[in-house]
Amino acid sequence: MKVAILLANGFETLEGLTVVDILRRAEVQCDTFSLEGNEVTTSHKIKVQSDKNIMGEEIKDYDCIVLPGGMPGATNLRDSERVIEIVKEFNNKKKWICAICAGPIALGKAGITEGKNITCYPGFEDQLGNCNYKDELVVVDGNIITGKGPAAAIPFAFEILSKISEEKVNKVKKAMLFK
């Protein structure tokens, strides 16, 4: 499985890079995609070099997309026509769509949350569309995985990895001393 992390300026460091870290520890192909240019600045002013750019067609070859939260990263993802197009296409193909913190607001704008169980950072529920909001750390419904916020970054990443290999989840958890 190939995983694409969508990084917009202002993304939450923990939510974007924890997923990259855990998946790469598990030897899963995980690439970061920027909305423009190659350098992305996190919400905490950390500069990150992305692997690829979202404008290429290559992203369609991936099996999973991840949308981190953080501000204004989540609104930058939500307001990108290209991101919304990709979210809709992945949903139509029943590929994995993962979003954490305020990241799920892009799923709401894409119109894919109808009747789904979804979580997000408190205060963004009104931007999720007509979904069933769940006050839980990580929620899975069909092909959509959502996480509540920065504290959910590790469990969220392990939930994504569990869709690839439960054996790798156990191996990486053990190596990271995560219980």
Rank of each mutant, 00 (worst) to 15 (best):
E166W: 13
G10L: 03
N9L: 04
K52M: 11
Q29W: 00
F158L: 13
G69V: 11
M176H: 02
I118G: 00
G73S: 11
V20A: 12
C120L: 02
F11C: 03
A26T: 13
L35V: 06
H44C: 05
A102H: 07
V139D: 00
E58D: 14
T18H: 07
D51M: 02
D63H: 12
N130L: 03
L137V: 13
N132H: 10
C131R: 04
N38R: 13
H44W: 07
E27P: 01
D126N: 14
K95N: 07
I54M: 13
V66S: 05
G16W: 11
I144W: 03
A102S: 14
W96C: 13
G103Y: 05
F11N: 07
E57F: 06
I5C: 05
A153K: 12
E36Q: 13
G129A: 04
K52L: 14
Y133G: 00
I118F: 04
I22C: 05
F33P: 03
L6F: 13
C30P: 09
R25D: 08
E15L: 09
G123A: 06
L161T: 08
W96Y: 13
V19H: 09
N92S: 14
Y121N: 04
E125S: 01
G56A: 11
N143E: 11
I46R: 08
I160P: 07
E57S: 15
L107H: 05
Q49S: 08
E57I: 09
N91A: 10
I145D: 00
I145V: 15
P72F: 03
P155W: 15
C30L: 04
C131V: 03
S165L: 11
K173C: 07
K88R: 15
Q49H: 08
K173M: 15
G129V: 06
G111K: 12
S43P: 03
T119L: 00
E57H: 10
E36T: 12
I145P: 02
T42M: 08
P122Q: 09
I59N: 04
F124V: 02
N53K: 15
G149A: 13
P150F: 12
T119F: 02
F90G: 03
C101F: 08
F124I: 00
K88G: 01
F124E: 01
N130M: 01
P150I: 15
K94R: 14
S165G: 07
E58L: 11
V28P: 09
E159H: 02
T146R: 04
V20P: 02
A99L: 05
V28Q: 03
N53Q: 15
G147E: 05
K109D: 00
R78D: 03
F33G: 06
C30G: 07
I22D: 05
G10K: 02
G111W: 13
I65D: 04
K148Y: 06
S50L: 01
T75K: 14
G142I: 06
D21L: 04
I54K: 09
K2V: 10
G73E: 10
G147T: 11
L6I: 15
C30T: 14
E114P: 01
K47M: 04
I160N: 01
N76I: 06
I112F: 11
I112E: 00
S43D: 14
R82D: 14
P150D: 01
F156M: 05
G70H: 08
G129T: 09
P122A: 02
F178V: 15
E89P: 00
E136F: 09
V138M: 04
K94F: 04
D141H: 09
K174W: 09
